[in-house]
Design a protein around this nucleic acid. Structure first.
Lengths: 242, 242
DNA sequence: CGCCGCTGTCAATGGCATTGACAGGCTCGT
DNA sequence: ACGAGCCTGTCAATGCCATTGACAGCGGCG
């Protein structure tokens, strides 16, 4: 198998009549397509063009698009985990908050580098074995912080889902047509610019901040994350007192 | 205009050669299609069949699918707000927590009654004037609870985005093919059933709880919401002390 | 040496949103 | 009451999409 793959890779270099695909080359090309620079759209025909092969050749390596997407999600998640590991101190430190923050933001960043993939994959369960270690680690960080095991697991699950959901949400908006985005934004700005102060005093006052947040999904995510973590802190304190 | 609509509605009853559409009848039919009972898929051809008219007739009333989806989102949001109002005491009470909980869950429920719509619309900004009052109300509840206006607005925005994101996330999964869902679930169960206890002690211990949560997105949402609100409570306390 | 399986190619299918040409009927101004 | 013109439904066609089945070359294995 190893030898075959190498051989095929060589054949690919030589510009033969038939393109020669591998699982890896396909994944690479697909990831490229998912990024904004790569067009931000994953379709078989684009993928074929990118690979210099017939679009349907991909079906020899992945049963259908779903399987391809799942594989892409897998490498993206792994990438996110590695990103987090690189930014984090070696062992499970006592700073649970930094751990959760960095992990969540790394996974998010990894997905947001390929919005098209985030839209397609975020709601799917990868269940890849590669992440299991990280999950145990994360839960143990929460456990050491003072949460009982089950509650730590619940907390991990909440954080993960929240992060993936917000990421997909952002990606969905950012992979809309520019024109649509601008339409939405214009409508929003008009609406918040014209609020009568006497009828909506608070809204009128915070309108500038709200329009600022409209442009900046990352800021909103960070706020949600911070508030969520404040809640976790409160739970830890409560568990400690009990 | 009023008279015309009534007239057309009558003509619709009588099974004439030409179906007669109105904005309202289209919205109704589309909402039906978005619900699980209605098939859970919104396409022009289905919509045409549902209305007994040519699919392209819809274009006379909505410029494109996006405009239709936005309109559907609008009625869904309004429905959610009304749902919340029905469950809530009259004025802005002192119980900010109940307000936020009920509002978030009502909007979520309203969307989840039409998963197909949630997938399509949750990331879009409606900017409908109908909700403005509710937003002001929500912010004022947070303000009265002790948050400064800007922070109250940020908090509202965070909660809204989090809720919509989690809702879209759930809807995306629930509108997958049964077969795919079951595949995911099976993979998950296998993975968590076979964890070696010595390598993943915490994960092994909380596996049952985690598999339980897999099936129950609503429970996860409630957990996220609770934790988030705990965080808000901490902020309110902090603001009070300052 | 010949068979078979792996993998790329090609043509076709069916679903989708969207468009433009057409046509009937209604309203409104005269 | 009549005709112009718009409103709105219909039809045919376009182009993108995922997926399938038939076919063909290449390479390895018996």
């Amino acid at each position: 198998m190893e030898a075959r793959v190498a051989e095929q890779a060589t054949a690919q270099q030589a510009n033969r009549r038939r393109a020669t695909l591998t699982r890896e080359s396909i994944l690479e090309a697909a990831l490229r397509l998912c990024s904004p620079e790569g067009g931000g759209q994953l379709t078989f025909s684009r993928l074929g063009k990118e690979l210099g092969a017939d679009p349907t050749a991909v079906y020899r390596h992945f049963r259908d698009k779903d399987e391809l997407v799942l594989a892409l999600a897998d490498v993206t998640i792994q990438e996110g985990i590695e990103l987090a590991r690189a930014k984090l101190p070696g062992g499970p430190s006592e700073d649970w908050r930094a751990w959760l923050t960095v992990t969540a933001e790394s996974v998010r960043a990894s997905y947001l580098a390929r919005p098209a993939l985030a839209v397609l994959a975020a709601a799917r369960t990868t269940a890849s074995p590669s992440e299991t270690g990280s999950v145990e680690l994360l839960i143990s960080v929460l456990h050491q912080a003072g949460l009982p095991p089950i509650e730590a697991a619940e907390c991990y699950r909440s954080l993960l889902d929240m992060t993936l959901a917000m990421t997909q949400y952002t990606a969905a908006f950012s992979s809309l047509d520019r024109s649509v985005q601008e339409k939405d934004e214009a409508a929003w700005a008009v609406k918040y610019g014209m609020l009568p102060e006497d009828e909506f005093p608070l809204l009128h006052q915070s309108a500038p901040r709200l329009t600022e947040l409209f442009r900046d999904d990352d800021q909103v995510f960070r706020m949600v994350l911070e508030t969520f973590l404040d809640g976790v802190a409160a739970r830890i304190a409560r568990a400690g007192n009990a």
